[in-house]
Design a binder for these strands. Sequence first.
DNA 1: CTGAAACTATGAACGTCATACACAGTAAGG
DNA 2: CCTTACTGTGTATGACGTTCATAGTTTCAG
Lengths: 253, 253
Amino acid sequence: MEPARRLSPMLERMWGREPAPRRGPRPRIDLATITAAAIEIADADGLAGVSMGSVASRVGVAATALYRYVGSKEDLLTSMADAVVPAPPEPGGRPWRDYLAQWTKAQRDIVLEHDWLLSISRFAPPLGPRRLLWLDRALAALDGTGLDDGEKINVASSLTGYALTDAALVHNAGSGFGEFDETDIGGVSDYGDLLAEVLDPETYPALSAAVRAGALGGVEGWVDDEDFRFGLGLLLDGVERLIARRASEGRTR
Amino acid sequence: MEPARRLSPMLERMWGREPAPRRGPRPRIDLATITAAAIEIADADGLAGVSMGSVASRVGVAATALYRYVGSKEDLLTSMADAVVPAPPEPGGRPWRDYLAQWTKAQRDIVLEHDWLLSISRFAPPLGPRRLLWLDRALAALDGTGLDDGEKINVASSLTGYALTDAALVHNAGSGFGEFDETDIGGVSDYGDLLAEVLDPETYPALSAAVRAGALGGVEGWVDDEDFRFGLGLLLDGVERLIARRASEGRTR
DNA sequence: CTGAAACTATGAACGTCATACACAGTAAGG
DNA sequence: CCTTACTGTGTATGACGTTCATAGTTTCAG
């Protein structure tokens, strides 16, 4: 009566579900090895350095050998995006807010350590073992808050999204914004100066006022750890309010 | 006394700052035309269809002619990411919360209409004329709330980030998650079934409980408009609380 | 023990693409 | 008119993802 449901070959490999081959030469490589090699390259040379050729030669096989373990380069990137993720922090009986704060910050830091994740994350619903473990821990932390499962998942999604966007901001702020070449910077030293250069106060009244007031003095100062906690606070305050509302609903009903 | 600051050639073109050529043949094309053509292709065939060749032939020139207006394909993508953005909604004297809600939703809808934006957005601080207009309106909407400029910008960033991640979720939920090929789906019809197939209840206790309870029945139902408002509500509640705090600080001090 | 079957890695080949460069054509200024 | 500045073209190149037929290797069946 068990319906023989079949996952995609890629998912089966990510979950270690493929049956061991019963004939032929022993595989010299492995999805895990390939993925690890790709991650090392990406960490060192950026995502641009990750080509089927470079990954293969680091593993010690021909480029085309990878296709026995990976349907396409896209598949490889998907596998990388799951494999870089370490184990989530331990709950340790803390209140949900403390845990989720750490949980979110940890996610952001992972992205910052592997900035190439920013170019991959399509934000597909997670299907890999490591990412799902994070989701599980977030749900667990929200146990007993009175939220229903759907709400818990939404909270987790929002927090993950926030971690990602903040990481993107920090990353792009640090690396010359990627908008103009360093050789072309000339006299314009930072974001604020650049905006001042370009904005017409009539069409951009509020923004140019802020620029003039120096709110954007240096980009390094614009987005930092304090700002992360700021936005995170907004979200968590919102969650807290929702939980309170659910609690009062539960009582009065 | 005016220091002759120089922007990157790309930025100058995006802001229409390049001096008109005084000699030679009249340009047959234009950064705006090129960008528009690229956007049309991306809307129709996805970002994969956008190559220097395809864009050029749609404009009616040779592929290499584009390089006179665009430093690289990257530049073209940057220009596209600014040019798709329409004008922001009109404030119309509404309270900040109403306006920002519409502002954020509008951003999400833009991304949904042009899903290729998801593959571009590096989340660089905006430097194009259209995106900066959106930022300006958000700051304007927060005038009189007692927040300082930095806080306003952070709020706007958080909201933009949320719009983007939510759009990504909706998009990926609708299109078969991009995780397994349709030919490989077999019996597994949706996200919930797939997780049920793969999760071990011992290592994923909270998540598999939620799955078993049917919280993930259908992906279409998982992420939709209501969920967008949910997450948005969390953020705006947080903002509201911050504003209230600032207001009370202002009084007592 | 033998041979078929199952499986692995290889190398050559293909098509696509971004980009560099030298060149031919064209408008304006002196 | 001829120089100067500028525009679009054609050719070429190198990198990359992917396909395919093939040779080599291990196990199982008889």
